[in-house]
Design a protein around this nucleic acid. Structure first.
Lengths: 250, 250
DNA sequence: GAACAGCCTGACGCAACGTCAGGGTCAAGC
DNA sequence: GCTTGACCCTGACGTTGCGTCAGGCTGTTC
């Protein structure tokens, strides 16, 4: 097949295929004597994968590394795509629900607080993050353990985990609001609860690892944003409490 | 509120807010004496809308025209956002189903045809298109009529409409495959059926309007791609048949 | 009053293409 | 065998939506 046909089949432009060729993401396996690109069935396979990952928001360079990884078999890709798509499904449902909530509120003549309205953008951990996390920690024991446990979780398990973490986040927020110092006993106790929660639900989280997480809460702006959305100053607060707790343990 | 706080609340970067200010999409309603941006609650409202439309894939310039349209009240935006989100939900479900189908096929040791695998990218009419269509035809009587009728449609109605149009597309494809000329009686009859289908389900489609549609099938590459995915050469075939039929009527 | 986080305005960089420009190629029809 | 029109090629520049410094003011805190 030549470019035009492939483009029509896949619903992309010819220019896009040229681009993928240029950057080495998808080079047709052959050329005619006159230089026309010739796409084989396996090229179409690859294009299909590329488009799925692209749709999920992956940068093309990352798509290339994913697809060129010899350790990742086709089924692994399918499983990952399936998981990411379900994540998106959940996220979109949440947004639909949020819009419906707002419509309802409006029709009753009331309006929501800004926090409530931005909430849905907050329940994040979107596709991009999942991929980055895997790249960062994919080869650690903790990641493997976490993957194993979360794979076995049912919907109910997830709700329970979410409720647990909401609760500990509330404890932090209340302590902050009450003016309790972040390195106080009370805050450190919440931090310890946080650590044990992670250990129970995801992976064995040592105080050292927990301290590392704590640092990330202020260094990675997405984590910062997550906590700041719950309460201003909470990211720094949790970070300090977690690190103080780690020091106390050690 | 100043930039940093708004950014944390909404889960975007400060740079993004600067950008929105620069392009006039969202300018804070005030500045301090020293030039600091000050965001009011209504600025937050607008930001919320912006982020929703952005999430749905609208270019920022279009978001601006949407939000600055004095004729569009907040509820209209909510309704549109709701519709677009549900479209995305349907589309994502379809993709999940497609991946599951492929996983199943693989586990049984068989593989799908390329057409089957790209199908899901094909059932298009995504968010962007809906917006463009409205911009193009939003002020025509046909558009209003179509909006009115489609609003009243149930899920079952949609399935029926989809089945009808699939059937007429198959008639075209079979005629093409059989080598029947596009301006033959048989092809023109299919075209006439197509026109009446549009008139029944969407808006009164005169032969002239139908001829215009026909031209678009070869001029707009997305329509072309749609028909080409059913069968190679079908876009041109349908276009010719539709225009020949219009000439026959006139 | 010194330190440090937070804000400002340029200005350049980048990803993923869109969009010509200028020029060969292929199939169909005369 | 020649034209015509659709299709292909390779540059090369343009666009969107920010990221990422750089260089400099502001505001709070100890």
């Amino acid at each position: 097949m030549n470019v035009g046909q492939v483009a029509a089949l896949a619903g992309v432009t010819v220019r896009t295929l040229h681009h993928y060729d240029r950057i080495g993401l998808l080079s047709p396996s052959g050329r005619t004597a006159t230089g026309y690109r010739q796409y084989s069935p396996s090229d179409l396979d690859r294009l299909h994968q590329v488009l799925l990952y692209r749709e999920l928001g992956f940068p093309l360079e990352e798509v290339a590394t994913l697809l060129d990884d010899p350790a990742a078999d086709p089924e692994a890709h399918l499983r990952r795509q399936h998981r990411l798509l379900r994540d998106r499904l959940d996220r979109t449902s949440a947004m639909v629900a949020a819009v419906e909530k707002e419509m309802e509120a409006r029709s009753m003549g009331m309006s929501l607080t800004p926090e409530e309205r931005f909430e849905v953008f907050g329940d994040w951990l979107p596709e991009e993050y999942a991929a980055e996390a895997e790249e960062k920690w994919g080869d650690t024991a903790a990641w493997a353990q976490s993957q194993q446990r979360t794979r076995a979780m049912t919907k109910d398990d997830w709700l329970r985990v979410k409720a647990e973490s909401d609760a500990v986040e509330r404890r932090f927020a209340e302590a902050l609001h009450a003016g309790v110092p972040a390195d106080s006993e009370r805050a450190m106790d919440a931090a310890e609860e946080h650590r044990q929660q992670i250990s129970r639900n995801f992976y064995d989280c040592s105080p050292e690892m927990h301290a590392g997480l704590g640092r990330m809460y202020v260094e990675d702006e997405r984590f910062t944003a997550y906590y700041e959305r719950i309460a201003p100053g909470l990211a720094q607060y949790v970070s300090t409490a977690v690190q103080a707790n780690a020091a106390r343990q050690g």
